[in-house]
Design a protein around this nucleic acid. Structure first.
Length: 197
DNA sequence: CCCTGATTCGC
DNA sequence: GCGAATCAGG
């Protein structure tokens, strides 16, 4: 892949938006994060500040006698890295998915909005469920911000309570969940044939 | 361990 | 110009 205008444009856009080099690399495809970072530097936009008036605390410009006026304000990260994370979405899969955020957890009935349509603990192989309740003990119990593309995004508990967290175990290749949760999330469309809407 | 960006340097 | 390897953190 080469740096076509389009790709460079997208790179600039994403970098400006605060996307990480690896995210940009994945989006572009055909390049590694190193390539992205390298390009970013060559483009001279290593600093992601919109109009960063960030005054470098360098009263002493440079005793550099040479003819290199390259100031290159690097290593200056105020804190403009909000990390929007456009997809920590614990969203239940649209198709063939069992949203049931409360697999084998005790049925808690919070004051706020209860979990609406809860196909709940039915139609799912007992084995898969057993597996889930088992691994939930080993769950990393991550918070939303701690999720990455390699951590299981299965939500446990109720978001409205303190007792809420994400599995966080290593995900299965590709999938958004760990093996156990993939088991209950992606049912091979089994004992639930009819359902004429 | 996972991840970040920064730099170097052979191509 | 390019980007893998490497470095330096978190």
């Amino acid at each position: 892949m080469s740096w076509t205008d389009e790709r460079v444009e997208l790179l600039k856009k994403m970098w400006t938006e605060g996307q990480s080099a690896s995210q940009i690399a994945k989006e572009l495809g055909g390049v590694t994060r190193n390539a992205v970072i390298g390009k970013v530097h060559r483009l001279g936009l290593s600093n992601r500040a919109g109009g960063a008036p960030v005054a470098e605390a360098k009263p002493a410009p440079k005793p550099e006698p040479a003819a290199k006026p390259a100031p290159a304000a690097k290593a200056a990260r105020p804190a403009p890295a909000p990390q929007p994370e456009p997809e920590p979405a614990p969203a239940p899969e649209p198709v063939a998915a069992a949203p049931a955020p409360t697999p084998a957890r005790k049925q808690i009935i919070p004051a706020g909005q209860p979990l609406p349509p809860q196909p709940s603990t039915n139609e799912i192989s007992p084995e898969a469920l057993a597996k889930v309740s088992e691994i939930e003990k080993k769950a990393k119990r991550l918070t939303l911000m701690e999720l990455t593309e390699r951590t299981c995004k299965w939500p446990v508990g109720d978001p409205a309570t303190e007792d809420f967290w994400f599995c966080g175990l290593p995900v299965q290749q590709g999938k958004p969940y760990c093996e156990a949760h993939v088991g209950v999330a992606f049912q091979p469309m089994s004992s639930r044939r009819d359902r004429r809407r």
